[in-house]
Amino acid sequence: MYVLRPDLSEDQVNEATRKYQEMLANLGATSIQNKIWGRRRLAYEIQRFQDGIYVLIHYQGDGSQIAPVERAMRLSEEVIRYITLKLDEEKPEAEDSEPVAVEA
């Protein structure tokens, strides 16, 4: 997830999201999904901004994509905050919650 400056135009937001999506694809990431959450209030002021444009991006990769993308975001003037989280694979839940009898 990353937060863009609130004073960016819609074209600039689309260009920034396309840039990071293409960067991830070039670095070998697969199943890339962008979701622009839009302008929202920040929990605290960042660089004198009280609002930001939130963008959530999901992708699958081996981890080598993280450092180059975070470096590009850190050097970018459009991105005011970013965070990368590793999600575990979803574990299937048991259909029945009843205890199962096991014979010894």
Rank of each mutant, 00 (worst) to 15 (best):
Q47G: 02
A16H: 01
R5D: 12
L87E: 07
G38C: 07
Q21N: 09
I46P: 10
A94W: 05
V79F: 05
W37K: 00
M23Q: 08
E70M: 15
I83L: 11
D51Q: 12
Q21G: 07
I66S: 12
G52T: 14
T30H: 12
Y82V: 11
Y20P: 09
Q33H: 13
E45T: 09
K19C: 03
T30Q: 08
P92Q: 06
P6H: 03
K86Q: 15
G52K: 02
R71T: 15
D7N: 15
N34F: 00
G63H: 09
L8H: 01
R81N: 08
K86Y: 06
R18C: 02
W37F: 01
K86N: 10
H58C: 02
Y54F: 11
N14R: 11
V55T: 09
I53R: 10
S9Y: 00
Q21V: 04
S64G: 13
R48P: 04
V102Y: 13
A16L: 10
R40F: 03
A101P: 04
D11E: 11
I66P: 11
L87R: 10
D96N: 13
R5V: 00
R39S: 13
L87P: 05
L24E: 07
Q60A: 15
P92V: 06
M23R: 12
L8G: 04
V79Q: 07
V102I: 11
N14D: 14
Q12T: 00
E103T: 00
N14G: 15
E77L: 10
G28A: 10
P68S: 07
S97T: 13
Q21H: 12
V3K: 00
D96Q: 05
L24A: 07
R39K: 06
Q21M: 10
K91Q: 15
L85F: 15
E45L: 00
R5W: 00
Y44A: 14
A29F: 14
K19R: 07
P6D: 01
Q47L: 14
E95T: 14
R41L: 03
T84M: 05
D51E: 13
S31N: 13
I32A: 08
T30F: 09
M1P: 14
L75W: 02
G28F: 03
Q33F: 02
I36C: 12
S31H: 09
P6F: 03
S76R: 15
D62P: 00
L24Y: 01
E15Q: 14
A67R: 08
S9K: 02
L75P: 06
E10C: 00
P99W: 07
L24G: 08
G52D: 07
D11A: 10
L75F: 15
S64V: 15
A25E: 10
